[in-house]
Each structure stands twice: as structure tokens, then as C-alpha cells.
Amino acid sequence: MSSVDVKGVSKTFPQTRSGTATRAVDDVTLHVPNGSLTAVLGPSGCGKTTLLRLIAGFLVPDSGTIAFDDRVVAGQGRPVPPQARRVGYVPQEGALFPHLDVAGNIGFGLAKASRRPGADVSERVLEMLDLVELPREFATRAPHELSGGQQQRVALARALAPSPSIVLLDEPFSSLDAALRESTGRAVARALRVAGATGLLVTHDQSEALSLSDQVAVLREGRLIQAGSPADVYMAPQDPELARFVGGASAVPGRAVSSGLSATCALGTVRLTAAPSADDLVLVLRPDQVVLVDDGVEAEVAEVSFYGHDAAVRLSLVGQHTALVARVPGPTAPTVGDVVRVGVRGAVHAYPAPVRD
């Protein structure tokens, strides 16, 4: 297996009928360690799939380089073609061959890939079924006899069978229901780690990225905003917009207090995680930091999203234009129209307020 190094990569698509070109990937630099799983996270249209296709070799970058370990596969001379990069690719819908059974699908790549001398395709198929946690008797089933999650596991087994250097997964769980998405995601992550594979998972689902990966790389409008561990990206986002995107944080105007690690805002005086770099601030409050208290600031409940074990409560501070989201235990959730009191738990991140013209 290999590490992946993307350095200064950009890709612009030609002008459309509107006369504008699209810069899908903009000067992205990203390191994916050998044997790790990195989630490339971002909203639709941010360049996630384009970046994946550049790494796979389906597209050629306009500038920058892509290397697997020390082997440059794009950006210096003629690019290495996809079939010579030893990359496994799992698309959104799995794309299994309907005329082949499970064994035929998994073994398809083995027919053309070099294998250990004397290796048996049927033996490798059974190994792959074990790896992706499917019963061996599934080998004779047709794709239409499988559930969506089972089809995605077979697609992963097919990608892993030839022992690729890199496995690329393009939103492989997007068509699955919530429960199946979670269980399939965990099974896929386990299979990649057992195989020792280096993986890149494209997703727009923050929970999926945070729970499955070793590293999260966030794209916005083609640019890499932040890359780090799931905890780093969630706990220390690069800017307020990223905080809102990852974790649903609320942004509240504030002003630094001269004494140091504190600021004042509509919720009173709050502690900061670090000394502020400006007087006028944007304070980022994660939903778990906004708590219902007896002696806090009055807020009206505008909306409640009940999830069973907990609930997301959208609040509007009484007499102010400040909206917040609090996450509370499900059984204690208030109802729409209730007036409650809220406070802040723990230290919050502060960012310089944007300069207005």
C-alpha cells in the first residue's frame, strides 16, 4: 500500500454556454498517510469527486503533482494511466456487473491483475467475502439478490481483490438508508484497516467523515480549508463557516475583554480557548455548549428536531436577533414556543470579525 501526496493541484473545466470556466480544484495540497483512511468532506459541487478522479487518473491536473509514495503519477511529464496506478475505485452505486454473480464480480479484476504464482481466484474471492463480512455462500448470488449495503461491500471486495495501492470511494453510502449507511460504513472501514489499505472516502456527510476516518480534509469551492484528525476539525475548526458546516455550530458576535481569555456577547461573558487576535469577534458555539439553565438569558424555542436519545433545539434570544442551536437529552426537550433560559458551557473559539466596507 502507498501514501498519497497531492501538491498544488488545480483543475479547471472549459467554458460553458454561460461563458465561464469552472475551477473545480484550486491549488490543493494534501498528504494521505500509508494505511490510513482520509475522508474528503464538503458540500455538493466543492470539487471532492474531481479530486478523487484526478488521483485515480481519470482526469489530468492543469498544475501540481500527485505521487504514490515516491512515484509521481501525474504532473511531471506524461501521466501514468489509470490501469497502471494500481488504484481500486468504488463508485456511488457500486456498479456491479449484472450478468456476473458475486464471485464473478469480485474476481473480475483478478483476471487482468498480476497475482501470486499459483494463486487461486476462487480462494481469493472467499478471502474477500470474509474481509467485507459477507457469508461465503453469497458467492453464487446475483447482484439483484443483494441489498444496497451488500452490493457496496461486494464492490469494495472487487476493488480490494487485486491488492491495489490506493482505494478510492466516491460517496459509496449515499443511496443507503440511515441505519444501513452506518453499519455498511463501519464494515467498509474495518475491511480497509484489516487489509492495510490506504483509502480516500468522498462524502458530504459530516457524521460519516468524523466517525469513520483517521483524517478529515474539508474542501470548499475547490480549495482545501483544513485537514486534520476528526477531533481537530470538530474541536478547532479553521473558521466560523467550517464550524457551522462540521457540527452545526452557531456564530455569535462578541467583543474581547481586556483581561484576556474572555469575551462578552448576547449570552454574557464567556471563556475563550485562546487569546483573541482582535477586539471585534465571531464566537463559535457548538450545540453541546449551549445549555438550558435556570439563570441564563431568555430564549424562545423556534424548532425542535427529536432524534430519540437527544434533540436539536433551535432558539432565538428574546429581544435580540441571535439564533442558537442547543443539543439536549431527548426526554427533556422543550416544545416549540416555550421560553427557556440558556447559557454557555466550556470555552469557545473566537475568530476576528470580518471587516465591513
Rank of each mutant, 00 (worst) to 15 (best):
L51C: 10
H99L: 05
P61W: 04
S63W: 07
S63G: 14
F58V: 14
I55Q: 02
F68N: 00
E93A: 12
Q92R: 00
V80Q: 07
G47W: 07
V102A: 05
R71W: 10
E93S: 12
L96H: 00
T50K: 13
L54R: 09
Y89R: 08
A84R: 15
A74F: 12
G75P: 12
V102D: 00
V90H: 01
L54M: 12
A113E: 11
G47D: 06
G107Q: 01
L51N: 02
N105E: 08
A113Q: 11
D101I: 03
P61G: 10
D62Y: 13
G88H: 01
G109M: 10
T50A: 10
K112S: 14
A111S: 13
G88A: 01
S63C: 14
I66Q: 04
L54C: 07
G94C: 07
P98Y: 07
P79A: 15
G64E: 14
R78C: 04
G75D: 03
P61H: 00
T50G: 09
A111H: 14
P98N: 06
I55G: 06
D101L: 11
T49M: 12
R115T: 13
G75E: 06
A67H: 11
R86L: 03
V90A: 04
F97G: 05
P82T: 05
T65P: 06
G94R: 03
P81N: 13
D101H: 09
R71P: 05
L51G: 08
L110D: 01
G64I: 00
V73S: 04
A111E: 08
A95F: 04
S63N: 14
L59T: 03
I66K: 06
P91E: 13
T49A: 10
L54I: 05
D70E: 15
T50W: 05
T65C: 12
I66T: 08
V73P: 00
R86M: 11
G109I: 12
L96N: 01
G109C: 11
P61A: 14
A103E: 03
G107P: 05
L100Q: 12
L54G: 00
L54S: 01
